[in-house]
């Protein structure tokens, strides 16, 4: 199978993820879209690893997964605590981080 197809898929997934982050308001959905982008990257890494015949890409993919897992832990905790205090999971409602 042509490895380029995996890359197309990766690009597609990334675009969907990016569009989701930009368009959706619900923090959970935004969050899932971020995950989607990360995984799109993973797919690209693995594909390149295969293409170039070395393991660098796969190693980085593992790193990314660990980072994603850590991110989920922190991110979900933040979302939950925001939801508790504001009764809303909309990212537009949480705009206090400005001067």
């Amino acid at each position: 199978m042509n490895p380029a197809n995996y890359l197309y898929l990766s690009a597609l997934l990334f675009t969907i993820g990016a569009a989701g982050v930009l368009i959706r308001r619900n923090a959970i959905v935004v969050f899932m879209c971020v995950e989607l982008m990360l995984n799109a990257c993973n797919l690209a890494f693995v594909t390149f690893s295969r293409l170039h015949g070395n393991l660098d890409g796969q190693v980085i993919a593992f790193f990314t997964m660990v980072v994603a897992a850590a991110e989920v832990v922190v991110g979900l905790a933040i979302i939950v605590s925001i939801f508790r205090s504001r009764h809303s999971a909309s990212v537009d409602d949480a705009n206090l981080m400005k001067l």
């Binding site: 990212v91 949480a94 705009n95 400005k98 001067l99």
Partner: peptide, 17 residues
């Protein structure tokens, strides 16, 4: 310049993108 920091996550995401 401060006005650019509007606090909306999604506008930051756009600028990052």
């Amino acid at each position: 310049l401060r006005k650019l920091q509007n606090g909306y996550v999604r506008s930051y995401a756009v600028s990052m993108l």
